[in-house]
Each structure stands twice: as structure tokens, then as C-alpha cells.
Amino acid sequence: MAGNFKEVKLPDSLHKRIEKRLPNTEFKTVSEYVTFLVREVLNNIEKEEDDQKAFTDEEEKEIEERLRNLGYID
């Protein structure tokens, strides 16, 4: 079964620039290369957002207490 794809537009110059790089990579097409890069970049952005979601102090204290009871912290 083929996957679902949507088209995006790249400036001609950027497309050419990527095309020139392809022989030095494992990617067969510009689309594959761009997909890889965009996923990598998005992951970094999403990770930063994730890291900002901390626990409330109360929640953290409760968890610490449980970890202490289980012997994971002194």
C-alpha cells in the first residue's frame, strides 16, 4: 500500500541546492531529504516545549516521598 503524500513548494534555487547534495547522501529524492530534515528540526523544537512542562511542586513532593519509601532516594 502506498502512503499518503502532500506537495509543498520549495524555491527553485533551494531545490537545486538540495539536488546537488543528494549524491553525497543516502537519500534518493529531494522529498526524502527534506522530510528527514524537517522531522529532525521539528523534533528539537517539540523537545524544548516538552522540557518546559515541569511538575507542580506538590506533585514532585509526592513522587519524591514514594521514591524514598521504595528506597530509590535516601
Binding site: 511538575f55 506533585e59 514532585e60 513522587i63 519524591e64 514514594r66 521514591l67 521504595l70 530509590y72 532516594i73
Partner: peptide, 17 residues
């Protein structure tokens, strides 16, 4: 069960350490 830490617990534990 006592060995089965949940993600919230491991995250707090790593932070604590």
C-alpha cells in the same frame, strides 16, 4: 511492583540525582 517506576517517577528521580 516496587521495581516498576512510572515515567513521572523516573523523571523526578533523574532530576533529583
Amino acid at each position: 511492583a516496587k521495581y516498576n517506576l512510572k515515567p513521572k517517577e523516573t523523571r523526578v528521580l533523574f532530576h533529583k540525582k
